[in-house]
Design a protein around this nucleic acid. Sequence first.
DNA 1: CGGCATCCCCCGGGATACTG
DNA 2: CAGTATCCCGGGGGATGCCG
Lengths: 118, 118
Amino acid sequence: METDVYAKNCPSRQVLDRIGDAWSVLIVSSLKDGSLRYTELAQRINGVSPKMLTQTLRGLERDGIVTRTVHAVVPPRVDYALTTLGRSLLGLCNALQDWAELHIGDVLDAREAYDSRP
Amino acid sequence: METDVYAKNCPSRQVLDRIGDAWSVLIVSSLKDGSLRYTELAQRINGVSPKMLTQTLRGLERDGIVTRTVHAVVPPRVDYALTTLGRSLLGLCNALQDWAELHIGDVLDAREAYDSRP
DNA sequence: CGGCATCCCCCGGGATACTG
DNA sequence: CAGTATCCCGGGGGATGCCG
């Protein structure tokens, strides 16, 4: 198959969009040690609205990156976990966060220098 | 410094946003072999509007990831190149694209399966 | 050639309230 | 508890037109 991310209509662009989505990255990273419930994800990921959490989880499920397991109990319980495909993303997500935490200082310095220019 | 990407107001979130931006990834990758002119970038990156190209380049420059060099000639010539900080991103960008090109098939299959479910 | 500036539209996404 | 439904707003981002 022809996969050129520079091409406008290449589906790999959509993959970039998904991975690029900040919520996706945070969700995948949160699930690295095992499954979590909906509420646990919501607490863990500071600032995500229920709408975006659900929406992103549905997208990840559709893309075969997470599984959604409903337990028939009261109160309801829904677990989310990574698939094999999802686990293959962990290295990337970790690298992303590592870079961010390692170079955030440089970036902030560069911004300050840029903004204080005539 | 406290760097927790799960925290709402952590600046590393902004780094995630920048790297997550599809245009940023494509620009950084395009510059891996050396500097390019504005028009060359526009041609290389299919589907980007002038506005977004300029805007993204400004953001990358502000964040210390690319340099912008204006040559005083007619017609004008502006070269963009990666900084050291920008070059440190190359591994990440390549990994991102590699993953996309490697797993795009799995993702598309998962989507089809998901969409054709009752 | 390499941009800003402006207009304008559309929808991403937050807040809130309600259900199985 | 785990969502859906609804409303609503800001701004992302395309198109177009003008400068140095």
